[in-house]
Design a protein around this nucleic acid. Structure first.
Length: 270
DNA sequence: CGCACCCCCTGCCGGC
DNA sequence: TGCCGGCAGGGGGTGC
């Protein structure tokens, strides 16, 4: 579910409420996520103060005052929300972080594809196989062009490879390629420099606009306070198969590529 | 190396 | 109305 814009919305919303707070306790009600919640996680976090809340790609990184980092990946249906008061746990609540201001940070996840982990510092998180964040200034057309030379794969598949670019999922890969005017199936290593420039420009524009709209709510997504996003109203191609292209009116086409639903305008994208 | 295909899991929607 | 197949924003594994 959540891609970079949704995770950014969650992180920027929660950051002011979390930084400086101490974790009094962690309750694990459901450890059976995609990767089982480590048994030692509660005692690793207990008593620690949260010193920063950052995002890398689709992952949420909460740094603690002893140098450890709590890493949260939301999978398809994960939510990280702040709750006030002493309401009973909801059906899909998996973990609850009790904070020193009596509020609770709750990780809930219907499908349990998410992941909550502890790592030894931000450096360890950075160097664990995830690539450059999609909104990093270090992500340049030159870098993508060079990386693509060795990759005999579709440009959309390349963009969704978290080892190269971190943060893009199926919605935004589709949307970015529409705005760049490039068909998803184009072979990555055959794209010219100008195409990569268009992709990087579209990436920044689409992600920034989506963040400004609080992300895309298709079904499950909510931000750190339970609010919807609205960027889905501006989707040009995602889930619009057969509908008229917003730019030229041609019906949007769809196909399955690398196992993911793929959408494009046959006229606007070449 | 790339990818088709399978899995993890639950909910929802459309078709019959 | 009710059941069933297909599909969903992610990610990881296998075998061809």
């Amino acid at each position: 579910m959540p891609e970079l814009p949704e995770v950014e919305t969650i992180v920027s919303g929660l950051r002011p409420a979390l930084v400086g707070r101490r974790v009094l306790a962690v309750e694990v009600r459901e450890p059976r996520l995609r990767v089982r919640v480590p048994a030692e996680l509660p005692r690793r976090l207990r008593g620690r103060r949260i010193v920063s809340v950052e995002r890398h790609g689709k992952r949420i990184l909460m740094a603690l005052d002893d140098g450890m980092v709590c890493v949260v990946g939301l999978g398809m249906t994960g939510r990280l929300t702040l709750r006030t008061g002493s309401a009973a746990p909801a059906p899909y609540d998996c973990l609850t972080f009790l904070l020193d201001d009596r509020r609770r940070l709750v990780y809930s996840d219907v499908r349990r594809f998410g992941r909550v982990d502890v790592a030894c510092g931000l450096d360890a998180v950075d160097g664990d196989g995830h690539g450059i964040d999609a909104l990093s200034p270090r992500l340049t057309p030159e870098l993508l062009h060079r990386a693509a030379r060795r990759r005999h794969t579709a440009v959309k598949t390349l963009l969704m490879d978290q080892r190269l670019v971190a943060g893009l999922g199926n919605i935004y890969a589709n949307e970015i390629l529409f705005h760049a005017g490039i068909r998803p199936r184009r072979t990555a290593h055959r794209l010219r420099r100008a195409a990569w420039t268009a992709i990087v420009e579209a990436m920044r524009a689409v992600l920034r606009m989506a963040i400004a709209r609080g992300g895309s709510t298709i079904a499950d997504y909510r931000d750190g306070f339970g609010r919807f996003g609205s960027y889905q109203e501006l989707h040009a191609v995602y889930a619009r198969a057969g509908a008229p292209c917003r730019r030229c009116g041609t019906p949007i086409r769809s196909a399955v590529l690398a196992g993911r639903s793929t959408f494009w305008c046959p006229v606007c994208q070449r």
